Computed example of a mutant assay.
Amino acid sequence: MRRHQRVTASGVRRPQSERLRRRQRWYFSLMGLCLLLIVLAWNLVRLWSTTAAVAMTLVAAVIPPIAVVIANWGEDR
């Protein structure tokens, strides 16, 4: 079974450097969000609601594996 490849209007795939840049942007954005959630949860939100801080920490714990999957999506060729 052959996968379908995404092509541009000219029929040529985007350059590797452009795909790498896009994947890096997604990865660093998600990891930045993870750090932001942890810092806010541990330093600010816990003063008002421990439950909300724990929930934010749990969400932040799930983000790194998702970031890795998104950053490597479709690049197994």
Results as ranks from 00 to 15, higher is better:
residue 45 V to T: 15
residue 3 R to T: 12
residue 64 P to K: 07
residue 10 S to Q: 11
residue 50 T to C: 01
residue 68 V to N: 02
residue 14 R to A: 08
residue 66 I to Y: 01
residue 42 W to L: 15
residue 15 P to M: 02
residue 6 R to Q: 10
residue 45 V to Q: 08
residue 27 Y to D: 00
residue 51 T to V: 03
residue 40 L to Q: 11
residue 65 P to F: 04
residue 27 Y to R: 07
residue 57 T to M: 10
residue 57 T to A: 15
residue 46 R to C: 08
residue 36 L to T: 14
residue 7 V to R: 05
residue 53 A to L: 05
residue 35 L to H: 09
residue 52 A to I: 13
residue 26 W to V: 14
residue 10 S to T: 15
residue 23 R to K: 10
residue 58 L to A: 15
residue 43 N to T: 14
residue 48 W to R: 14
residue 75 E to A: 14
residue 32 G to T: 06
residue 20 L to Q: 12
residue 18 E to L: 14
residue 44 L to C: 11
residue 1 M to V: 04
residue 39 V to A: 11
residue 54 V to G: 02
residue 68 V to T: 06
residue 2 R to A: 13
residue 71 A to G: 05
residue 57 T to V: 10
residue 50 T to M: 06
residue 7 V to F: 08
residue 30 L to A: 07
residue 36 L to K: 05
residue 41 A to S: 11
residue 9 A to K: 10
residue 70 I to A: 12
residue 39 V to M: 06
residue 26 W to P: 00
residue 41 A to Y: 01
residue 17 S to A: 12
residue 35 L to Q: 10
residue 65 P to H: 03
residue 40 L to A: 15
residue 59 V to H: 02
residue 52 A to M: 13
residue 5 Q to D: 03
residue 20 L to A: 14
residue 57 T to Y: 06
residue 47 L to V: 11
residue 27 Y to W: 04
residue 36 L to V: 12
residue 51 T to F: 02
residue 15 P to K: 09
residue 6 R to A: 13
residue 23 R to T: 06
residue 30 L to M: 13
residue 73 W to C: 03
residue 18 E to D: 14
residue 39 V to K: 08
residue 9 A to H: 08
residue 61 A to P: 00
residue 43 N to K: 12
residue 6 R to W: 05
residue 42 W to C: 15
residue 10 S to D: 15
residue 7 V to Y: 03
residue 74 G to L: 06
residue 4 H to M: 10
residue 41 A to T: 05
residue 42 W to R: 15
residue 48 W to N: 12
residue 70 I to K: 11
residue 54 V to I: 13
residue 36 L to H: 04
residue 32 G to M: 04
residue 9 A to G: 05
residue 11 G to M: 07
residue 17 S to N: 09
residue 39 V to I: 11
residue 28 F to G: 08
residue 76 D to M: 03
residue 62 V to Q: 09
residue 10 S to R: 05
residue 34 C to G: 04
residue 42 W to N: 15
residue 56 M to A: 14
residue 72 N to K: 13
residue 64 P to H: 05
residue 37 L to V: 06
residue 41 A to K: 02
residue 44 L to A: 15
residue 74 G to C: 07
residue 51 T to N: 07
residue 74 G to H: 09
residue 49 S to D: 13
residue 60 A to R: 04
residue 46 R to G: 07
residue 22 R to P: 00
residue 25 R to E: 05
residue 34 C to R: 04
residue 69 V to W: 01
residue 76 D to L: 07
residue 67 A to Q: 00
residue 20 L to F: 08
residue 29 S to W: 03
residue 10 S to P: 00
residue 11 G to V: 07
residue 46 R to P: 02
residue 48 W to F: 11
residue 48 W to M: 10
residue 33 L to Y: 01
residue 14 R to S: 07
residue 73 W to G: 02
residue 72 N to A: 11
residue 77 R to D: 10
residue 63 I to A: 11
residue 30 L to Q: 02
